[in-house]
Each structure stands twice: as C-alpha cells, then as structure tokens.
C-alpha cells in the first residue's frame, strides 16, 4: 500500500508544481482521513527533499459554517514550507497557480514548542507575536471540488502565505475587525471572532491535532489560524491587502 500513497503524493506534488488541475484522488480509490494526512506528509516530503524547509502549519475549516458545509466534525490542517512564503508587499505570478483564491487571516509566531492538547492560555503563553496575514489557497482539484480526504491530501489547499508586521499578542484579540481589499476596495469584511470565536482557540487546536500524527508545533514556527471570511478568487493584476484592527496590514500583488 505504501507505493500507492507514494504515487498519490507524487501526483499532488506534481500538480502543485506545474499549476495544473487534477481529478480528485478519491475518485480512483477511497482512502481514510488518517491516510490522507499520510499522503500530505509524503507530498510535502517531496518538497523538503528538493531543499525547502518546514516553517509552520495552517489551520482550515475554522468556522462552524465550514465544518457543517463539509460534513466533518473537526478542523483540518496543512504544512507550510519556506517555498510557499510570499513576501509582504511581494508579487506572485497567476500562471504558477491553478485557480488561486485568497483569505484574510492572522498568524502566530511561536517562541516555545507546543505539544499535545493544551489550553488556550498555555497556547498563548508560547506565542512570541501575531501578525495580519493572507493565505493563498489553491486546490489542485478541478473546479475546487473535493472530499475532506482529498483536501487534506492536498495540504488543505494551502499554496502560499503572506505575513505582515509582527505585533505583541498580549491583548484581547478575539474581535478585531478585518478588511480585505482588492485594488483598495473592500471585498470581504469580518472579524477575528469568525475564527472559532477567538483565533487563540485555533492555535490550541493546532497543537492537539498535529499530536495525533506524532508532531509538535516548534519554536519559530508560523501558525496560520484560519480564514476569517469567505475566500475571494484572485485575478491577474489585482493588488490585495488585509487590514486587521490594531495589527496593521499585509499585502501582495498578482502580476498582470
């Protein structure tokens, strides 16, 4: 069976590298959620083998509405590498992606590792700083359609992330207004409260969830807490900015 998962991981990695859409992996043969995380690990392993290194993880399905919509009972997570990092104020090329979308988020930077189930307070005491962030999600599947197993195998759709200025996180950030703008016009409006009622809960959940697969959150890692609004489709030439109350803003451009 190991070979089959290696093949699926290679298929996903290939699609991500070339920016090509593929059929859902689960269409050929079904696999379980734990197996989906195995495929994810193997496919990210191919990136690491090419010299990329792990810089953190991302949380997905962090709103009740999304969990219900997908018919699952927990969040999902994916792995972040330095190769996915887009510089604040940087530019991406539309052609490198399949059908990219963007979500406004906040990110945490850890100063200490977090292992296993932790309380929100324990999670926050490991935080060095937080920042406004944007995640570029890009399902490698045709028409952005997938089962939960498919999306987990596909690294929870993660393909890029942009992190703004790091700020101290020692204040109540459970309800910070968020505005995502395209070319200076608001396209999504929300609040950090949309992330599980408080994004710190997402950080605690991240520690619990990776432990199920023998991992821990490492000092120096960046944790993307999850989308605060619906995702917006990117288009060539667009300039994207996410402003978060009290945290400042972060942005990037898509080349024309």
């Amino acid at each position: 069976m190991g070979n089959k998962f290696d093949d699926l991981a290679a298929t996903i990695d290939d699609a991500a590298r070339k920016g090509d859409a593929i059929a859902q992996l689960s269409e050929a043969s079904a696999f379980t959620l734990p197996q989906a995380y195995d495929i994810q690990e193997k496919s990210i392993g191919l990136r690491l083998a090419r010299g990329e290194f792990r810089v953190g993880m991302k949380m997905g399905f962090t709103s009740r509405a999304k969990i219900i919509q997908m018919g699952v009972d927990d969040m999902i997570w994916g792995r972040l590498t330095d190769g996915m990092l887009v510089e604040d104020g940087g530019e991406i090329s539309f052609a490198d992606y399949v059908h990219p979308r963007v979500e406004p988020e906040v990110a945490y930077l850890l100063k200490e590792p977090l292992e296993g189930p932790v309380t929100t307070i324990q999670a926050m005491s490991a935080v060095e700083a937080m920042a406004p962030a944007l995640e570029i999600i890009d399902s490698r599947y045709k028409d952005f359609k997938f089962t939960v197993e498919d999306v987990v195998a596909d690294n929870a759709s993660s393909s890029g992330f942009v992190v703004g200025p790091w700020c101290h996180a020692e204040f109540d950030h459970s309800n910070l207004g968020m505005i995502m703008e395209f070319d200076g016009r608001p396209v999504q409006i929300g609040s950090t409260a949309a992330i599980l009622g408080n994004p710190a809960r997402s950080l605690a959940a991240a520690s619990r969830m990776v432990a199920e697969f023998g991992e821990r959150l490492e000092a120096g890692w960046i944790i993307m807490a999850g989308g605060a609004t619906a995702a917006e489709a990117l288009r060539p030439g667009v300039s994207v900015r996410n402003s978060v109350e009290h945290l400042g803003s972060v942005g990037f451009k898509v080349s024309a």
Binding site: S174, N175, G177, I179, S191, A193, A194
Partner: peptide, 8 residues
C-alpha cells in the same frame, strides 16, 4: 476606530 472595529 469606527472603520476597523470588529463586530461579533
């Protein structure tokens, strides 16, 4: 901040 204030 009337523009940025979050509402939940």
């Amino acid at each position: 901040d009337g523009r940025m204030c979050g509402m939940v």
